[in-house]
């Protein structure tokens, strides 16, 4: 009994050490790419462009034209959506595909660590690298446009800080499932592009869900997409949101999708070991 407990403690310490070393190494790698990361961050301007169009619509038609959101609420929503998107970007399918083609997967498989953790740590390290730049961009927007500046209440900020990593986990799980298709088809990345379309239009990245017609909104809420952008963004923006339902949806979808991704990995490994690649 005692032995098992000390084994568990040693296992946890080992896991923590791997996490620490992987994260710090990945962070060092990402720092080498900081120029690229700034550009990637800049290429996430879509919510800001959409903010432009929606503010234009609000200016000419009033809040009625924007599903009841005032100019200020619109500004906060899209800025929050921008931040949420920055910290939920997932590209594992591309790295995985590249690693498979370059033959890096085989050496990874021969090490006593499941390869998925390398990708997770790369994403987390990239988010840390991105953070100062995103803050600078926000500061710039607030400077130009002080009217939209706001400080979320501490409970809301805390809730958002929990919801954003959860949204990231969900998005990662979805893409990981598609990534596992790499074992069967060379076109898995194309499927990811298809998956991006409902994500783009249903997540709230291009329009606040409040502006959707009732039927479309109900449909969207039944999918995992709005919980990955709209929900954390509205938390951050301080708008009225069903907090309990949002967290429940995030948790539920993750709990459903992670096991699928796990079995996908198991099946993929079986296929890989039959074919070699």
């Amino acid at each position: 009994m005692t032995r098992r407990r000390s084994d568990a403690r040693a296992g946890a310490a080992h896991g923590l050490r791997i996490a620490r070393v992987l994260l710090s190494t990945q962070y060092a790698t990402m720092l080498e790419y900081r120029a690229e990361i700034v550009l990637w961050a800049l290429s996430g301007v879509l919510p800001l462009i959409m903010l432009g169009v929606w503010s234009g619509a609000e200016a000419s038609g009033g809040p009625a034209a924007t599903g009841g959101l005032s100019a200020q609420a619109l500004g906060r929503y899209f800025l929050s959506a921008f931040v949420v998107r920055q910290f939920t970007i997932v590209w594992v399918i591309h790295s995985f595909e590249e690693d498979t083609l370059a033959g890096r997967l085989s050496p990874y498989l021969l090490q006593p660590l499941a390869p998925v953790w390398r990708y997770v740590s790369a994403h987390l390290a990239e988010q840390v690298t991105r953070l100062p730049f995103v803050l600078a961009m926000l500061a710039l927007v607030f400077l130009i446009h002080p009217a939209v500046a706001w400080l979320p209440s501490p409970p809301r900020l805390l809730a958002a800080l929990v919801a954003i990593p959860m949204a990231f986990a969900l998005r990662f799980a979805i893409q990981w499932i598609l990534t596992m298709l790499c074992f069967w088809t060379e076109r898995a990345a194309a499927l990811e592009r298809l998956m991006y379309i409902p994500y783009l239009f249903l997540s709230g990245l291009v329009a606040p869900l409040e502006a959707y017609p009732e039927g479309v909104r109900a449909f969207a809420l039944a999918t995992p997409f709005p919980w990955m952008v709209h929900f954390p963004a509205q938390l951050l923006a301080g708008a009225e949101v069903p907090v309990g339902r949002g967290f429940a949806a995030l948790l539920l979808w993750t709990l459903v999708l992670v096991p699928i991704g796990w079995s996908g990995w198991k099946l993929g490994m079986r296929r890989h070991s039959a074919l070699g690649a």
């Binding site: 169009v53 234009g56 619509a57 000419s60 038609g61 009625a64 034209a65 239009f201 291009v206 329009a207 502006a211 959707y212 017609p213 479309v216």
Partner: peptide, 13 residues
């Protein structure tokens, strides 16, 4: 769909 959202209330863009 997104474009139609701007015209839901009969306004122009």
């Amino acid at each position: 769909f997104v474009l139609s959202l701007f015209f839901r209330h009969g306004h122009d863009l």
